[in-house]
């Protein structure tokens, strides 16, 4: 009755859209942590009758890294930040959620045009399409977050979401990736996040804020001009 695969995939989709809609940094980190956990367990579900011990171990390691270590690092770097709430992004929250829905529909469209026959043990076309759609929409959502948010932390989270999506895509295309490759991807992810964390700390110390629009101002190409809309409202009044 309850299709676990479908349930997990829908939860991942839900989490993505919730990430698009929330403005508090701690909740964003929690969302990404849960999504990372789900993504790492997902390949186990898809290869259900034959689960190798190695893949269980690998899933556990991945869950540890994606669900605990990386979010923990990000929590640590947030503690020093002055303002734990995101500013109003370039594209507002409501529109972001609707665009997220549109992304999911687009991804479904793409996946129904492609024909993926060689996915291991996905019983229905629905699950196959949904998996592909989840992967592609996660990548879109990650890119979208990278593009439209001001704070550096959210951009890091967008990168993490994109990594989730790429990992899912990898699960589809090959039945299971060779272990060396998976370990390499994981290491790459870890190192990238560490570097981003260090850069973040430095930005915070220099500016006392991790707002990337300040970087834009420094380079002289106009600061926060995108926030002035036709309405003549000042930015402070739009804090959510």
């Amino acid at each position: 009755m309850i299709d676990l695969q479908v349930g997990f995939l829908s939860l991942i989709l839900l989490l993505n859209i919730l990430t698009l809609g929330s403005s508090r940094l701690k909740i964003l980190i929690k969302n990404v942590a849960v999504a990372g956990t789900l993504v790492s367990i997902l390949p186990l579900l898809f290869s259900y009758p034959k689960i190798a011990a190695a893949s269980v171990a690998f899933a556990a390691v991945m869950m540890l890294v994606k669900g605990f270590i990386i979010p923990g690092l990000l929590y640590f770097s947030i503690r020093k930040v002055s303002d734990p709430i995101e500013q109003v992004p370039i594209i507002g929250y409501h529109i972001s959620v609707i665009i997220g829905i549109v992304f999911i529909l687009l991804a479904l469209l793409i996946s129904s045009k492609l024909s993926l026959h060689h996915l291991p043990s996905s019983p229905t076309t629905l699950t196959r399409d949904l998996l592909f759609a989840t992967a592609i929409s996660t990548i879109f959502v990650g890119l979208f977050l990278l593009m439209t948010r001001w704070k550096a932390i959210t951009q890091v989270l967008g990168y993490l979401i994109m990594e989730n999506g790429i990992y899912l895509l990898g699960t589809i295309v090959v039945g299971h990736m060779p272990y060396i490759l998976e370990v390499a991807v994981l290491l790459d992810l870890l190192v990238a996040v560490m570097i981003m964390g260090i850069v973040l700390l430095n930005i915070n110390e220099t500016f006392n804020d991790i707002d990337t629009s300040l970087l834009v101002a420094r380079s002289g190409s106009g600061s926060r001009s995108g926030m002035e809309s036709e309405s003549g409202y000042s930015k402070d009044q739009q804090n959510d």
Binding site: G92, H94, I95, S229, E230, S231, G232, Y233
Partner: peptide, 12 residues
């Protein structure tokens, strides 16, 4: 306000 970009509002 909810549908702001579609309706142009000028406030003074």
């Amino acid at each position: 306000d909810f549908l702001r970009p579609l309706i142009l509002l000028r406030e003074n």
